[in-house]
Design a protein around this nucleic acid. Structure first.
Length: 189
DNA sequence: AACGCAATCAACCGCCCGTAA
DNA sequence: TTTACGGGCGGTTGATTGCGT
């Protein structure tokens, strides 16, 4: 893509947030024709977007099997375990969380979990200063971290995490997929 | 009520890999 | 074998929203 031929016959390419109309066009097109080569799909659907952009929009937002709403404590646990195993292989991790996207997990990791880890880290350094049982084993990854610092551990944290989640549970989707899909069927050709 | 800051998330960017020609 | 292209992925950015002062 980057190396894309871009025979750019001055085909203007739209960027930025997707409009409802674009969403509908894309959803509608895929419902009727299925996914395909994204570049040609974008053209065929009449979208002034790159294939990449369409693919991203579809995978991260429009897919009907997406699970919206907050990450559950169980999911968070799983993410942490898998991240400890595989590192930042978000798409690989996402495959084990049905309905979740790599982007979503990545964002979640960076904004929430990483923060928790930092807090745990600072807490640990503080307490190891005071505790001074010099065997401060180097903590290499998340799992180690959580094992080391949160021993009673995931449970305790899960509670802490979920506490934050609860009040946001089911934060409204701007457009639920049901909405989009039913619109699409109304439109359907 | 207004402002500033922090958190969140959608979307883009650029690199890499697989594959077809 | 090489090259061009499309797709996938991880990282980053920017807009928006929420919250505290």
């Amino acid at each position: 893509m980057d190396k894309a031929p871009c025979n750019s016959q001055d085909v203007e390419v739209r960027k930025g947030p997707w409009t409802l109309e674009e969403d509908l066009i894309l959803t509608n097109y895929i419902a009727n024709h299925g996914e395909g080569v994204w570049n040609s799909l974008a053209k065929a659907a009449g979208l002034k977007r790159t294939g990449k952009s369409c693919r991203l929009r579809w995978l991260n937002y429009l897919r009907p099997d997406l699970r919206r709403g907050n990450i559950t404590p169980e999911e968070q646990l799983l993410i942490m375990e898998l991240h400890a195993k595989w590192g930042n292989r978000w798409s690989k991790i996402a495959k084990h969380l049905p309905g979740r996207t790599d982007n979503e997990i990545k964002n979640y990791w960076r904004t929430r979990i990483q923060k928790q880890i930092k807090q745990a880290e600072t807490f640990a350094t503080q307490s190891s200063d005071t505790n001074e049982h010099g065997s401060t084993s180097q903590v290499s990854n998340t799992a180690d971290l959580m094992e080391t610092y949160c021993q009673p551990c995931y449970q305790g944290n899960v509670e802490a995490f979920s506490e934050g989640n609860i009040h946001q549970e089911l934060n409204e989707n701007y457009w639920s997929m049901e909405d989009l899909w039913s619109m699409q069927f109304l439109n359907g050709d």
